[in-house]
Design a protein around this nucleic acid. Structure first.
Lengths: 339, 339
DNA sequence: TAGGTTGATGTAACTAGTTACATGTGTCAA
DNA sequence: TTGACACATGTAACTAGTTACATCAACCTA
């Protein structure tokens, strides 16, 4: 009781029969046409066109052992930083004839394990994941299946899987150092959810250790312009004096900027503002946003070529540390008070 | 000369042999464990775990005829509107046990055809595309393979494929009508590239026909904050008086806002500003942005369920018109001059 | 105790391709 | 004319699963 609908799709045997040749010849017409006489090739091709024959990807895959696609698990698509990363990843994978299956995890470890299972079930040859904190179930799955998997947005050579990314603690410190050098001591830090997010956790840890002797106040907000705007209100409603606001992502910083604008607080006159990410829009906002550039495009390219090599030549990639660097724009100025 | 590496992956026959059962029993343990005795199930499962057996997705697919994934072709991931659409699409497909392969076309028809071919080659069961303007090569491919394909972000019941989307001309007119009702007559229209983009073309056509008697000036800019900011400069450098700026996407509008801010031009006091899209951030910007809400989330859900039905039950979906509606916020005010 | 029913398991034929090897044909040189 | 060789094509065995059908044992009933 296979296909109720009667007319099953035409296969290579149907074509062979209709063209009066063997299955091997049809296969050759498809894969090495130069090995077939002009005459038969044309005849077979005609039949293929007539019958609308489309070779089955699955049957091909079963022979080659290749499905030619990999999966990427990202927390969300709603943050431009991931969208940019995926865009770059997709392009670079495409150059290597690999397609990209996207799955979002909403930063939920159980969802991640489930989606990863789904990706492997449909035949993903490799995985790209974010960070190094994952559920036991997920870790066990990767170990058991031994599927090539690269952790990104994070650098940690001691991790069980290869990591390709930046040092989040250092990136955050770079930002805070900049503020410190400008004379800012009382800094409000606006960050996204820390739960299940080791990138954010690392940035916070980095700030905590660098910020000894500084006056850091912490504000958690959902990532997005809205979260940033809310946080801007929170920063100034508790009455505490603030020299600068450091946002652990550019989207939050832009949201904060809007929030401040709504309160009539001027950047950078009244308060300096920094982000981390360096989204393309950050150079355009008014005032333009000082930030720390995270090389997500290069990360996408590196991850793509590393994963492709691993998948195709069983070459486990090296860990790669990508440099994040400071970008000084108009949103940060020296602290007048301490001049 | 198949697998040079020697140790080929373990398959179901290996497991059967090691467990001392038949292949059918192993298959049953995997797919209908209730049909197998507790004792043999445990034994087989043990062997599976021991040997790290992972069933081949391709072999499964060859039998079921299902690969359980579909492809989406979008112009870019760098515009939040597509990222949001894909996020919603991915979630809704996931509910139906389908995965999503993402391919970006950069609005290049040749790339679209090539990527579509790639998606079908790896076994995509269906496709989601943007708009109704496509290369002949692409159209021929869809026709030949008869792969379920839905065109989105566009509504046109006369199109060869089912369309699920909004009326782009009407959406643009909704925006312009709002400006007109506020007394604005001299309107600068900032739009993205029209080449190979029927959504933008339709919006422009809609504006042209509605805007008879109004004074419309056209500015093309690459989509993004940067493009918007540049356009804002262009609008006011040619010396022409302008009551309002209508941007055919919210990202452009936000960019325009930054551009105006840089020139010291105030929204909405000096000029009214509108977008189209209704991105989540548009409500947060200062001033908050009047716009036309495009229901991309619902579009994702509808497209997902329609495509799933088509793929699974060969039920070709109906065309669906999704309503776009006006959102009035702070960036548009009545024209003082005409009061 | 024979016959029927149920439930678990095995055998082998499927799915749709690729490909090693066998075969056949034609050309050319000896 | 015959053998050598190249080249095109065919046969059948692979790839790794699923599943219809056959088999067999255990249990229950008559």
């Amino acid at each position: 009781m296979k296909d109720q609908s009667g007319k099953k799709r035409v296969n290579l045997r149907d074509v062979a029969k209709a063209a009066g040749v063997s299955v091997a010849t049809v296969s050759r017409v498809l894969n090495s046409p130069e090995a077939v006489t002009e005459k038969t090739r044309v005849r077979v091709q005609d039949v293929i066109d007539q019958l609308n024959f489309v070779p089955s990807a699955a049957a091909r895959a079963i022979n080659s052992g290749r499905t030619r696609f990999v999966g990427a698990l990202v927390p969300t698509l709603d943050n431009a930083i991931f969208a940019r990363f995926l865009a770059s990843l997709e392009r670079a994978l495409g150059d290597r004839q690999l397609s990209l299956v996207v799955a979002t995890t909403n930063s939920k470890p159980e969802l991640e394990a489930e989606k990863a299972k789904g990706l492997l079930d449909i035949g993903a040859e490799g995985l790209i994941i974010s960070g190094v904190t994952h559920s036991d179930e997920f870790t066990a799955l990767i170990e058991r299946t031994r599927v090539p998997t690269i952790a990104t947005s994070y650098f940690d050579p001691t991790y069980a899987l290869p990591t390709i990314g930046y040092d989040n603690a250092a990136a955050a410190q770079t930002a805070l150092r900049h503020l410190h050098e400008l004379g800012h001591r009382r800094v409000a830090v606006v960050h996204g959810p820390t739960r299940n997010n080791d990138r954010t956790q690392d940035r916070i840890t980095g700030l905590t250790s660098f910020g000894q002797g500084m006056d850091l106040a912490w504000f958690e907000a959902p990532i997005g312009l809205h979260g940033g705007a809310e946080a801007a209100r929170a920063v100034f409603t508790d009455g505490r004096a603030t020299d600068a606001i450091l946002c652990l992502s550019d989207v939050l910083a832009m949201g904060v900027q809007f929030g401040l604008q709504g309160q009539g607080i001027k950047v950078p006159k009244d308060v300096s503002l920094m982000g981390i990410d360096d989204l393309p829009g950050s150079a355009v906002s008014v005032p333009s946003l000082s930030t720390v550039h995270l090389p997500v495009q290069r990360m996408g390219e590196q991850a793509a070529s590393a994963l492709a090599d691993w998948v195709e030549h069983e070459k486990r990639p090296e860990n790669q540390l990508l440099e994040a660097h400071l970008i000084v724009r108009a949103s940060t100025v020296p602290n007048e008070r301490t001049q």
